[in-house]
């Protein structure tokens, strides 16, 4: 179902639930994986994904159709991730690298994370990046989004995003070579 059709059906109280169910089915995987790559833990990702869709439900009536629906949902998911990570750092009074270390440990120990050594190393290298740069990298590298789309989601200029991505690639390559 196209986004426009979903939105039209959502505006009708009789077909609202059905339309929203379609929306969740359409975007759940993209949103879940976007969140999972940021927070690593499945349970946290599950909570945040549900939270994102509850927020989408509450605010979809006010959604301006001049923006794309999926970039709007991505923006909500991105904000949820950043808020979650910020709160995590505040809660434990830990500096950034300690949260990164905690998440890196999950990569080593969690039963629902598996891959060869270089793949796991790549994930650990990503955790060394600042959260926003990690978001840029994930959206460009894994989700293969255009810079313009990422710019719309993060509210950052395309030029700044290009620089951020190339710096991220450099840092990751350096980390893997060195470690």
């Amino acid at each position: 179902m196209e986004d426009k059709e979903i939105l039209d059906k959502f505006s009708n109280p009789e077909s609202q639930n059905m339309a929203f169910n379609q929306l969740v089915r359409k975007y759940q995987q993209k949103i879940y994986w976007h969140i999972r790559k940021m927070v690593i833990d499945h349970d946290d990702s599950d909570d945040l994904t549900q939270e994102v869709f509850v927020k989408v439900w509450k605010n979809l009536g006010n959604f301006r159709q001049d923006a794309q629906l999926y970039t709007w949902i991505y923006r909500i998911a991105t904000n949820e991730c950043l808020t979650f990570l910020t709160n995590k750092k505040k809660r434990f009074f830990l500096p950034i690298h300690d949260v990164a270390a905690e998440l890196a440990e999950k990569i080593d120990t969690s039963p629902d994370i598996s891959g060869d050594e270089i793949q796991l190393k790549l994930q650990k290298a990503l955790l060394r990046l600042p959260d926003k740069q990690r978001l840029v990298f994930n959206m460009k590298y894994y989700d293969e989004m255009k810079y313009e789309e990422i710019s719309e989601i993060l509210g950052t200029s395309v030029g700044a995003l290009k620089t951020s991505y190339h710096l991220a690639v450099k840092k990751i390559e350096e980390f893997i070579k060195r470690d």
Partner: peptide, 18 residues
Amino acid sequence: NVYQVPEHYFDRLPTRVM
């Protein structure tokens, strides 16, 4: 993708969200 989800996770998620 090194991350996995429990079996049928995405089948159940829409119901849980609803």
